[in-house]
Amino acid sequence: MSRPETRRRRPGGAELAPYAILAIMIVALVLVPVVTQYTVRTANIYDIFQNFASYGLVALALGITIIAGEFDLSVSSMYLFGGMVAVLSGASSPVLGIAAALGAAIAVGVVQGGLIAGFRLNSMPVTLGGYLVVLGITYILGHNKSVLYDNYTVGLRLDEPILQIFSIRSLVSLGIFVVAALVLRYLRVGRDLRAIGGDRRAARVAGVRVDRLLIGVFVVSALGAALPGALLSYSLATASPTNIGFDVLTFSATAALIGGVSLSGGKGGAVGIAAGVLSLSVLQEILAILRSPDYVSSLITGGLLVVVTIVWAPNLSEWFRTARVLRPAEERT
């Protein structure tokens, strides 16, 4: 019978793409004072890392599910859910609030992961349902409106500049990224994760505990979305059941993809995703400096996502090849 078709190879340069993009963004930032009267100050760098703190972990969460060969559509509502639970249960102690948010996230992750692994379901419709369920719960918890968090000093502490450009929130995010990078590279789970995304059948045959790993993946994904949501809610001193004008899902997907995560699974790492998130954060800061209206950011992020998806589309080169009609002399069969 026919041999196994050789998998389409990603160009080697793709490994460097996230860093190239980040470099481009940084160069653009540096060029801003050349184009405008504005001088780039440490406050801007601080903003960039704050943005990273707010959304970076969600990109990591989504990225991990994609590396494992799945897709968690529920991250955007987990984000809001984390915020709501933290605010509601953190009245007396913010730590308690965070713990509650994380605990709830674990529960959701176990359920989603359990359904997907146990029934061998496609993760998209299940996480779509999960998205609705979690969103509904968020609304119910907040009685359909935003909830204020009285302990606003917590937010101030979280956002206090450290070394001028960081804050507790951004350091927490960066720290978790470091841990994730180490785990993915040096621990067995990291390799197994890429195995189940790269070739699930082969991984199963080789003896990897696929089902357990899948559940773990969705738990991590839920945690990765809930934690930054919780911290952001403390920072804003409000938990809201809706995202006003910002789509966490689009941002995370774009950051993950330009960060080198492959949609076919098995490829990608925490460092790349961090670069992807930073790239987008720098971009947003540039737009803010230029006083660009919000929609430009939407346009660029959406456009980037479409471009990246096309560039890494599996049949792109084949289509170009077969679309050309050669002259009879150089006939190809």
């Binding site: 789509d247 929609y295 980037l304 996502l305 589309a313 792109l316």
Partner: peptide, 20 residues
């Protein structure tokens, strides 16, 4: 034609449309 992931493409298109 190019085999791009439909979910991601539509997420991107949604973003583009919002911007536009």
């Amino acid at each position: 034609a190019w085999g791009a992931n439909p979910i991601i493409v539509t997420i991107g298109a949604a973003g583009l449309m919002e911007g536009m």
